[in-house]
């Protein structure tokens, strides 16, 4: 299995006078198509780690290698393209644009790259909305949806450009257990159907125990890294 994402000797230090080491020499690699979960207490550095994997944050030292290419050598625009095409983000706070409808939000990553929306693309977006069980509310304004619906819309949005990697930070963090189960099943279904690599931060054991691999981060270090099989 080839590694889609590799982290080599990642350190992250905040502050210049009072230094706080958030990540301490992290080495990780993720196989293409795998379903991974990252657990750890709040403040353990797991969100920072995810943001570094998603090219949103920069490590103080160390290398991030996506598809075999070290991202340190990429321009800002190239990084934007990577985020647009290769990575899908799902955050704890759904982060939909309130000015747009659910369907328009789903189509935004496509429009960033291509401008106008083709008929096929629109149908594909509707299909993803159906996949997340929201085909009836595609034209609702995103602010007029429940938390679970918004989160599922954000998942559809993360999928629209068929990214190779989906990075999710507490995707079910503020949802009830029913919605959590629905969303977990959805993510797993996408993982199996499209071979998308998932890296999910969660404190929810029901999600973590269903992953292929669990990485526990404690005080910025990998405390445990176990695989199911």
């Amino acid at each position: 299995m080839n590694n889609i994402l590799e982290l080599k000797n990642i350190n992250k230090i905040y502050g210049s006078t009072i230094k706080t080491q958030v990540l301490n020499n992290i080495n990780l690699s993720f196989e293409s198509g795998s379903f991974n979960s990252i657990i750890g207490q709040s403040g353990s550095g797991k969100s920072t780690l995810l943001n570094i994997m998603g090219t949103l944050d920069k490590p103080s030292s160390g290398e991030v290698i996506i598809n075999g290419i070290n991202i340190a050598r990429m321009t800002k625009n190239r990084l934007s393209e990577i985020r647009n095409k290769s990575i899908g983000f799902v955050f704890q706070f759904h982060y939909l644009l309130p000015e747009f409808t659910a369907l328009e939000n789903v189509l935004l990553p496509y429009r960033i790259e291509n401008g106008a929306v083709t008929k096929e693309m629109r149908e594909k977006a509707v299909e993803y909305m159906r996949l997340v069980g929201l085909e009836k509310v595609i034209n609702n304004n995103s602010t007029k949806m429940s938390g679970g619906q918004q989160q599922r819309t954000a998942i559809a949005r993360a999928l629209i450009n068929n990214p190779q990697i989906i990075l999710a930070d507490e995707p079910t963090g503020n949802l009830d257990s029913n919605s959590t189960e629905t969303i977990y099943n959805l993510l797993r279904d996408i993982n199996e159907r499209y071979g998308t690599t998932f890296i999910i931060i969660t404190h929810d054991r029901h999600i973590a125990e269903k992953a292929d691999r669990i990485i526990e981060i404690t005080d910025g270090k990998i405390n445990l890294d176990i695989k199911k099989q």
Binding site: G54, L56, K76, N77, S80, E81, I82, R83, N84, K85, F89, Y95, L96, L97, P98, E99, L108, P109, I112, E113, R157
Partner: peptide
């Protein structure tokens, strides 16, 4: 700024 941040996370370029 929140919206711009989200758009940037989704890959919108600075020029856009």
């Amino acid at each position: 700024s929140r919206q711009i941040g989200i758009l940037k996370a989704m890959g919108i370029k600075s020029r856009q």
